[in-house]
C-alpha cells in the first residue's frame, strides 16, 4: 500500500493505491499498451484486462483461483501493434492501432460465436496521425498532413460493423491528439503540431475555433477537456519537454479557454511530487484523476480538482514502470512494466 508521504502538507488530499492482483503477459516481447474492457461471453460477463505486445493482443479474465486466464489472443504478423484505442461504453470489442513509426491501420478485435474464431477486421488504413474512441460508438481519426489532411468520424454498430462516415472540416495544421469534451457530447477538441487548439461541432462537422496556445513545448498532447460555465478547461501534457527541475517542468498543465473569444490562459500546473526529478513520460486522464509514468520510473497520480499529487508508486524490485492506465470503472489503476507484468491497484 503506497501513498504520498509529506509531513509538511498534512492538509493535502491523499489517495491510496492498494495492489489487488498481478498478471504476466507477453512473455516473448515488450508490453506496448494495456487497458480494460467489459466482455460478454456465453459463460461469463466480466471486466477483462487487455494487453498489447507488438505481435499480439490478449484478453485476460480474472479466475476464481485468483489468477488471470487468457480468454482470446489476436496475432499480428505483418504490422506491429502501437496502441489500444479505448472505446467508451463499448463491450466485447477492442480497437487497436498498428503501424511502424506512425499508425497505418486501425482494426477492431472481437470473437465470433458463429464460427468460434477471433476476428480482426480492418477499419481504416492510411497515414493516420491521431485516433480517439468517442462515446456512442464513434471513432475519430485524422489522416495525411496539412492541406491533404482528412478528419473523419466513423459510427459503428455493437458488432463493430461500420455504419456511417462523417467528414470534419480539416484544420490547416496536422492533428496530434483528439480529446472529448466532458459535458458536451457534440463538441470535439484537438491539439495540432503548432500547438493550436481546434474545436469542432461533431454533428455538422464545422470547425468552430482555432486557438493558438503559444506554448514553448512542441508536441504537447491534450488528454481531456471539461466544459463549465461557458469555458473549456483543457488538460495537457508535454512528453517532449526537456528534463529539468520539477518547478518548471510540470507533468500536466490545465489551460482555460474561452471559445467565444478564442482567448486562453494557463490555469494550473501539476508539479512532480516532492523529491522526484525528471519529467512526464506517458499517462492517462480519467474523470478527475491523472496518472503519469515519470522518467524516474515512478507512477504519480494527481487530483485535477485539487491540483495536487495524491499518490506515488515507486519502481518495484522487478523494474521501473512503463505504462499507467485507468480501468473503465475509474477505481482501478493498471501499472505496467516492459517485461509484460501488469499490476492492478485499487485507487481510493
Amino acid at each position: 500500500k503506497v501513498a504520498v508521504e509529506d509531513p509538511v502538507e498534512d492538509s493535502q488530499r491523499k489517495g491510496s493505491l492498494q495492489m489487488t492482483s498481478t498478471l504476466k503477459s507477453c512473455s516473448a516481447s515488450c508490453l506496448v499498451d494495456m487497458g480494460t474492457v467489459w466482455w460478454e461471453a456465453a459463460d461469463f460477463t466480466a471486466l477483462c484486462v487487455v494487453t498489447a505486445c507488438e505481435a499480439s493482443v490478449s484478453l485476460w479474465r480474472h479466475l476464481e483461483s485468483g489468477h488471470w486466464g487468457s480468454v482470446h489472443t489476436w496475432h499480428f504478423t505483418k504490422v506491429p501493434v502501437i496502441q489500444i484505442v479505448p472505446l467508451p461504453g463499448v463491450q466485447s470489442l477492442v480497437c487497436v492501432a498498428l503501424g511502424g513509426l506512425e499508425i497505418s491501420e486501425i482494426r477492431f478485435l472481437f470473437y465470433s460465436s458463429e464460427d468460434g474464431c477471433v476476428k480482426q477486421p480492418l477499419v481504416k488504413t492510411g497515414n493516420i496521425n491521431a485516433v480517439l474512441g468517442l462515446k456512442n460508438r464513434r471513432l475519430v481519426s485524422s489522416c495525411g498532413s496539412l492541406q491533404d489532411q482528412e478528419v473523419e468520424v466513423l459510427s459503428f454498430s455493437e458488432t463493430g460493423r461500420s455504419k456511417e462516415r462523417q467528414a470534419l472540416m480539416p484544420p490547416e495544421e496536422t492533428v496530434l491528439a483528439f480529446a472529448e469534451v466532458d459535458g458536451m457530447q457534440e463538441a470535439l477538441i484537438a491539439l495540432t503540431t503548432t500547438d493550436c487548439l481546434v474545436v469542432w461541432n461533431l454533428t455538422t462537422g464545422q470547425l468552430l475555433r482555432k486557438v493558438p496556445l503559444g506554448f514553448s513545448y512542441p508536441g504537447s498532447v491534450c488528454h481531456k477537456v471539461y466544459s463549465d460555465s461557458g469555458l473549456l478547461f483543457v488538460v495537457l501534457s508535454h512528453p517532449h519537454a526537456k528534463e529539468s527541475n520539477s518547478c518548471v517542468n510540470p507533468a500536466f498543465q490545465v489551460v482555460v479557454l474561452n471559445p467565444k473569444t478564442a482567448r486562453s490562459a494557463r490555469l494550473m500546473s501539476l508539479s512532480l511530487p516532492l523529491g522526484i526529478t525528471g519529467r512526464y513520460l506517458e499517462g492517462e486522464v480519467k474523470g478527475a484523476s491523472a496518472a503519469a509514468v515519470l522518467t524516474s520510473g515512478n507512477i504519480a497520480v494527481w487530483d485535477l480538482f485539487w491540483g495536487q499529487c495524491t499518490a506515488l508508486l515507486p519502481p518495484d524490485s522487478e523494474g521501473s514502470w512503463s505504462l499507467a492506465r485507468w480501468s473503465v470503472t475509474d477505481t482501478c489503476l493498471l501499472a505496467g512494466q516492459k517485461d509484460g507484468s501488469v499490476y492492478i491497484y485499487s485507487y481510493t
Binding site: Q206, L208, L231, N258, K260, A265
Partner: peptide, 23 residues
C-alpha cells in the same frame, strides 16, 4: 481569471459559433 483576461464569456458559445461557422 477575470472576464477581462479571457473576454466576455457566453454559456451558449457552442450554438453561437455553430451558427456563424461555414458548413
Amino acid at each position: 481569471h477575470s472576464e477581462s483576461d479571457l473576454g466576455p464569456i457566453s454559456i451558449n458559445w457552442f450554438e453561437e459559433l455553430s451558427s456563424e461557422a461555414p458548413l
